[in-house]
Amino acid sequence: MELKSRYIYIVILLAVLTSLPLWVGGFLRDALILFFLYLAAAEVWGFMAKHAGIVSLGQQIFIGVGGYTTAVLSMYFGIPMYASVIISGLLGAGLAGLLSFPLLRLRGVYFAIGTFLAAEVIRLAFSGWEFVGAGKGLIFRDAYGIPTTIIYYPALALAVISIFLVYLLYHSKLGFGLRSIGADEDVACGLGVNTFVCKATCFILASLITTLVGAVNVIHHTYLHPTSAFSISWTVNFLFVAVIGGVGTIVGPIIGSALFVAFGYLFAQYLGLSLLLEGLIVLAILIALPQGVWSAISRKLKLNLKPPL
């Protein structure tokens, strides 16, 4: 019975969220799109980092690949935009699969460094690649006509899919394998877990979501530049969102993303100080609540939630 009524609330929540663009103003819609995109990417990043022990500092690879693929396919090859988004997702997943071979053989901090370096190499390649505009960037003119009332939905869908993916993954056989790898990779391997296949599957799924986030982001922002499309600041932001809220929980990034987007807008007015202020607040949160905001709330209210909530 408890389960049933829980689903009812989820349905109500989704109904409110899907109808939101019909009655909220333009600015809030913009903020919500950012909120959903960061949420979607941070959910999978947090799951990978906390449960599977895969701490990637290179997820910007997929933001950039998603953005560039979507823009190039629909502008230069005349492929419909929605199809370009889907193809970019598949391409991102494929790239993640390829990168798994060299990168996932590295562990812990070496994997993190490896992913970051891979992102730098790809950024340099795009900076010199005239076809995609090289260092001048790429303007995605075809996306000018797409209003935020439309972009809102793929962003919302990505966030919902990401949350469900994390939930299902956690409770799946693969999730068990990943959690054992995150805890002790050697022992897991000794118990029959094919650690490479498990980690690669997780990395590919997370990167698929991240690529789609990059694709939707470029339709929203209509401009690509190698230094920002492949910037480490993407992954740092996902990390912040996950960590502020509570890394490895599902609710945590929801709170984290809301705070992150709100901070971004609030502090942009304090000219020149915004970076500093944001950094200080995040630092303060992390010192006061090292487990993240959500973990603190759920402990205070004694919710006794079952992971990964």
Binding site: S172, K173, F176, G177, A188, L191, G192, V193, N194
Partner: peptide, 13 residues
């Protein structure tokens, strides 16, 4: 213990 059963013995959840 389930990890052993899931992977070592290749069982369902």
């Amino acid at each position: 213990v389930m990890i052993g059963a899931l992977y070592g013995a290749d069982e369902s959840l």
